[in-house]
Design a protein around this nucleic acid. Structure first.
Length: 398
DNA sequence: TCTGGGGTCCTAGGACCC
DNA sequence: TCTGGGGTCCTAGGACCC
């Protein structure tokens, strides 16, 4: 989808059509930290980009204040419309789009909220696929009111590149026999899977385009990039054997948040971590996910990411335990200045049916844990709990 | 580019097992 | 106790993506 969040905002606020629109976190009153999630092309023209700090975005593009008369004159700084992220609304639009995709494709693999791969092998043919794709675009626009860019190719990685090639509202068909030709002049940065690090490594090998990567000496590339290098060379050659499969169940769930001002106040850190843990455990419960590993993420200035995790002897749905383990893992960072915290559950399994609660399995000492309880109390109750879950040893079994 | 939030996959060492 | 070969799981970190 093209500038999906901004397109959604225009859907319910048509006056934003043609105006610079910026959607992001931290745009609401009282918030100071945040970043751009999506900028419309009009906003991008002023240098506003995804992932940009809100302060930088505002420097480039001022903000229309709601309710104030528009006093814009030619010599005034350009202004745009800033809107906070509203995931619920975007998800509802996304569902409408998904319904169209499910209808037109054999298989759909959703990638995030605004992208998908479609296998349409059985629905169309190379001679008529352009018309087919145009039809899909029209149906998306008619049903959901937002535009998509489509790339058609013989495999996933080439189709992805093709879809980015003519954004917005693009439609690019790469016939199988033209794949190499299509890719040859492409900057390596445009290949899916090449980020800043890989791009730098490739530049060091004097490789600038997909065509150069395709014909590079394999040894040189794999020495630098390992297996990933071989993979990227295939992609650059238009070779990709992956099959379009629907996304499965999530493998991990996480919740994180940044502080307006980095802090070393451990009580404040713990409070934030507990709130994150509670929200995360709640989300896992709603999704029917059991977790066997609980971890935290601690980001210290300038941007050092550290993670700690602990695995249990069996999968659980136990919100108080998520909280107590997270807090225990945080102990190690006592005294450190922290700019961002996160909690994660992984090693997920999903119960049949809609099991939302393992009533009767809760360990009483954990259940009775109060906010003021000491950590030692928490960890010993966790040991109790673990002993209930541990697989019997051979001795016990015999 | 001074950096939000939610994910996936890969690597590498260590513990442990047969 | 100067030690093969194959394998799994756990933890921490890193690159990348939307």
């Amino acid at each position: 989808m093209d500038c999906f969040y901004a397109a959604c905002e225009r859907l319910r606020e048509p006056a934003l059509e043609g105006e610079p629109v910026v959607v992001g976190m931290g745009f609401e009153a009282g918030e100071t930290t945040g970043a751009v999630a999506t900028a419309s092309y009009e906003a991008r023209a002023h240098g506003v980009e995804s992932a940009q700090a809100i302060s930088s975005a505002l420097e480039r593009l001022g903000r229309h204040e709601a309710g104030l008369p528009d006093r814009e004159t030619s010599n005034e700084k350009p202004r745009g419309y800033y809107r906070p992220v509203d995931m619920e609304f975007y998800e509802s639009v996304s569902e409408t789009v998904s319904a169209v995709l499910d209808d037109v494709a054999d298989t759909v693999r959703a990638v995030g909220i605004d992208e998908a791969y479609l296998d349409v092998t059985e629905r169309t043919g190379w001679d008529v696929v352009e018309g087919f794709a145009r039809h899909v675009k029209q149906r998306i626009e008619a049903d959901a009111g937002v535009t998509a860019s489509i790339g058609v190719a013989a495999n996933m990685s080439t189709a992805k590149v093709a879809s980015d090639y003519e954004k917005p509202d693009g439609l690019v068909v790469v016939n199988p026999e033209h794949t190499e030709e299509f890719l040859s002049d492409l900057a390596i940065e445009e290949l899916h899977g090449v980020g800043p690090v890989t791009a730098r490594q490739l530049h060091e090998l004097d490789i600038e385009t997909a065509g150069e990567l395709a014909s590079a000496e394999e040894r040189a590339v794999t020495d630098e990039l390992g297996d990933n290098g071989r993979e990227l060379m295939d992609r650059a050659r238009g070779v990709d054997d992956r099959v379009v499969e629907p996304v499965g169940k999530p493998k991990s769930l996480s919740s994180e948040s940044a502080f307006a001002e980095p802090t070393e106040d451990h009580a404040q850190l713990r409070d934030r971590l507990e709130a994150l843990a509670t929200a995360l455990a709640d989300r896992a419960q709603r999704k029917g996910a059991l977790y066997q590993t609980i971890g935290i993420k601690v980001v210290t200035p300038p941007f050092d990411v550290q993670t700690r995790e602990r695995s249990l002897s069996g999968p659980v749905d136990d919100p108080p335990l998520v909280e107590s383990i997270a807090v225990e893992l945080l102990e190690e960072f006592q005294g450190e200045t922290v700019r961002k915290l996160g909690v994660r559950v992984s090693n997920l399994s999903f119960s049949e049916g809609d099991q939302t609660r393992l009533d009767g399995w809760e360990c009483p000492s954990v259940a009775s844990t109060r906010p003021g309880d000491g950590l030692r109390g928490l960890s010993s109750s966790q040991d109790d709990w673990q002993s209930r879950w541990r697989q019997p040893t051979l001795d016990e079994f015999l």
